[in-house]
């Protein structure tokens, strides 16, 4: 790399893989909000993005990775290497972090804690959906003759773009059907893309739609089980969306893309995909649990109860996001009162 006028590619690859690493941390970020210390979160994010995910990518998102050469793993869109690892790392952290104050009653029943701004949440989810097209487009390489997947198998940009779109559509419809909830409907788009991601290069678009539709129907229910049965307070459902969504995608590729050849190693198989999914789950969960336990023991994981009740913005941030909200309503509605410009 630079400044090397003969090398146009290495910097692009470094930047793209840095994006993937940052994505793993952003997957964790939503789940742990409102009670994790920023210092503890940063340590976890660094470890996940700079260490844990790198193992997953080298094992299963590389033509020479052993999951591919030994078990025939096919995961072109990194559903396992990015999403499953980050989702299960998050699960390990959530177990040690504990639920937000007020999330569960003494009898175990669940209280819904609404987000600050639902329209902004939906806009954010839409931006993620838009970003997925670049993210997945970045998973294939144009060699001058044709597009190649990360495993050096031939593919087309057309297949990646259209099957990503089918994933968005199927996941949204599925999640809407089972929840009627706009937040989960847009999260369903993410579930759908992740569900189709392992075999974007191989699926017929109608099949990609149905695989994603299935994922969109199942993952919100899995999130309900995590919350209601296991008392895991995942504020945005990332464990279900990314962790189990990735597993779903890998297993579906083992069913519907079984028999396709890899460049190196055995052909795609159900057993190979399922076994690889288990590896990704353990690879994510174990370090997430252990590191967050260490942070908990040294007091760097969770904020004080007082700060959590007040709100972390109020406790830690030296500015106010909405200073006008402190203006008394009667004063604000008085037409004779001076405006800020005056």
């Amino acid at each position: 790399m630079g400044p090397n006028l003969t090398d146009n590619a290495s910097g692009i690859f470094y930047a793209a893989f840095t994006l993937f690493a940052a994505t793993t941390a952003s997957i964790m970020s939503g789940s742990v909000i409102e009670r994790i210390r920023i210092s503890g979160f940063t340590i976890l994010a660094l470890f996940l993005g700079a260490v844990v995910w790198v193992f997953g990518a080298s094992w299963g998102w590389h033509p020479d990775g052993w999951l591919t050469t030994e078990w025939g793993l096919h995961d072109v869109g990194a559903a396992g290497a990015v999403h499953t690892i980050a989702g299960f790392f998050t699960l390990g952290v959530l177990i040690n972090l504990g639920p937000r104050i007020g999330r569960f009653n003494a009898d175990g029943t669940v209280n819904n804690i609404n987000g600050h701004n639902m329209p902004m949440s939906l806009i954010g989810l839409m931006l993620i959906v838009m970003g997925f097209f670049g993210f997945l487009g970045g998973c294939i390489i144009y060699t001058g003759d044709t597009w190649m997947t990360i495993y050096n198998t031939p593919a087309t940009l057309s297949a990646f773009a259209f099957n990503t779109l089918m994933g968005v559509a199927g996941g949204m419809i599925g999640a809407y059907l089972v929840t009627r909830d706009p937040f989960w409907m847009m999260s369903g788009a993410l579930i759908g893309v992740i569900s189709s991601a392992p075999a974007l290069d191989l699926y017929y678009p109608g099949l990609a739609f149905l695989v994603s539709f299935g994922g969109g129907c199942v993952m919100p229910k899995l999130n309900d089980i995590l919350v209601e049965k296991f008392k895991i307070d995942d504020a945005v459902g990332a464990v279900a969306v990314h962790g189990f969504g990735g597993v779903w995608g890998l297993v579906m590729a083992g069913i519907f893309a079984s028999g396709y050849q890899n460049v190196a190693g055995p052909e795609i198989s159900f057993v190979g995909q399922l076994s690889s999914a288990v590896v990704f789950m353990i690879l994510g969960f174990a370090p997430g649990y252990v590191l967050s336990l260490v942070l908990k023991l040294v007091g760097l994981l969770r904020v004080s109860e007082q700060a959590e009740v007040a709100g972390l913005d109020k406790a830690e941030v030296p500015v106010s996001a909405y200073p006008e909200s402190t203006v008394p309503a009667a004063f604000a509605n008085d037409p004779t009162s001076p405006t800020p410009a005056e």
Partner: peptide
């Protein structure tokens, strides 16, 4: 240095509440 600074800021912020 940044992470250590974060932790110090957090501890002070919680103490000042």
């Amino acid at each position: 240095w940044t992470i250590a600074s974060m932790a110090i800021h957090e501890n002070k912020a919680y103490k000042d509440m």
